[in-house]
Nucleic acid binder design. Sequence first.
DNA 1: CTGTATCCATGATGATACTG
DNA 2: CAGTATCATCATGGATACAG
Lengths: 130, 130
Amino acid sequence: MGLPLRKSKIEPPPFCPLTRSLLLLRGAWAPNVIWALSGEPRRFGELRHDIPLISARVLSARLRELEVRGLVSRHLLNTSPPSAEYTLTELGREVMPAIKALIAVGQKLPEVGEPERKAARRATAVRIAA
Amino acid sequence: MGLPLRKSKIEPPPFCPLTRSLLLLRGAWAPNVIWALSGEPRRFGELRHDIPLISARVLSARLRELEVRGLVSRHLLNTSPPSAEYTLTELGREVMPAIKALIAVGQKLPEVGEPERKAARRATAVRIAA
DNA sequence: CTGTATCCATGATGATACTG
DNA sequence: CAGTATCATCATGGATACAG
């Protein structure tokens, strides 16, 4: 995310079967957007509320990207004031299993703060005879 | 991706059940590393070969992070020249379902190039009466 | 071979202001 | 309300050189 998925100027890993889905998760906000859309159709403002801290700019960008990829469809409502409604497409719903799997895994993972991330590796480092 | 998961200086979304797993995918290379370790234990050099284009610096960083999080264990072999062996821990293996789900989804997603990403949204924009 | 330290380029975000 | 445009910031990644 940032989850950023930096695409090397060269070529993306030919082997990795993960490259594609990783592109999907690009930005690290996309999964949350999909998750927020898993239920009923949501309007832009509702999504902003559902996904705390996401900026309008980023939400807009992700929605557009997901739309271009065919995971999300956008409908303009001729209301006043005008509003927009976003829903998952059939293709978009196919992503849910992966999202759910991620959530399930997350619940099993221990919480790790920033400090620990930079901690030494000695924790599990073990010396064994060759 | 920089699937990067940029942690706001403020606070991470309290609600999102995805935050944790997303932290795991940080860097967008982690999933590939886990995937590469899904089989037999691998040495540093083997991983570099398994994951084309990944730099030693990044591979090292991801392995360390996964190690700190308890998903990967590292073993130094007293060989000459010295070598290291990485394996998934039990916790690490629990992530596989999510990885596999991502791969499965990836196969269903259409290929989308950079140009399309910036393309207009008109494709699916539809006007419906309110 | 296994990593680590630097330096640098780029992408992803956040904040803010503005338009329809 | 729904977005978009701009500007500034920072993390992640790549390349290269160096160390155990």
